[in-house]
């Protein structure tokens, strides 16, 4: 009942959702940054299969808990379109030595694991998500929006054959 071949956009979107836990305003203190990510989040937005395609509605619901050291954030949640659900389990770690972020998420539906590497760029956070397939790399940009919200934009460059180019934009608020 869904186009399985082209639904990776939803998966990527749900994966990228977890990056929202990286608040930008408090980037000066790494442990505080992850601590601020703890809580329940909901998001609504749109996902496109390609740059030219019509956007489709997407929603997410994420719960995040921080450990005692405030350096490791465990996350669970779901993202869904009308024909696809991704149940996500992941974690984000902060390295105080280099100030960077790394982590991974896996989706229960297909067992796909996505590796993440992140750094701050001005007020925004830029991250790279690698899904393990050759050439399957997405760029994720998180931008703060108000006191308790973020906007996530995830984009994937078209492949050498010109196909692809998924783009997802989701606005998150605390529940």
């Amino acid at each position: 009942m869904i186009a399985m071949t082209k639904m990776r956009a939803a998966i990527m979107a749900s994966t990228a959702v977890l990056l929202l836990q990286l608040p930008l305003a408090s980037a000066g203190a790494a442990d505080t940054l992850l601590k601020n990510l703890a809580g329940n989040w909901t998001g609504t937005g749109s996902a496109r299969q390609s740059a030219d395609s019509t956007p489709e509605p997407i929603k997410c619901r994420i719960e995040a808990t921080i450990d005692a050291t405030s350096r490791k954030l465990a996350q669970t949640g779901r993202c869904a379109t009308a024909d696809r659900t991704s149940t996500i389990v992941g974690e984000i770690n902060h390295d105080p030595e280099n100030g960077g972020y790394s982590g991974r998420w896996s989706t229960r539906a297909d067992g796909r694991t996505t590796a993440l590497v992140g750094k701050r760029v001005g007020k925004n956070l830029h991250l790279t998500a690698s899904a393990g397939e050759a050439g399957s790399v997405s760029t994720i940009v998180l931008t703060p929006s108000g006191a308790d919200g973020y906007v996530m934009v995830m984009s994937k460059a078209p492949g050498p054959d010109g196909k692809g180019g998924e783009q997802t934009e989701i606005r998150f608020t605390r529940r």
Binding site: A3, T5, Q49, S50, E56, A82, K163
Partner: peptide
């Protein structure tokens, strides 16, 4: 639901929903 149905994929493999946004 009826929103879960997609059109036949095109030559690029894109299959938009039958009911658009």
């Amino acid at each position: 639901s009826l929103f879960s149905l997609r059109r036949t994929p095109d030559k690029d493999g894109e299959a938009p929903p039958v009911i658009p946004t």
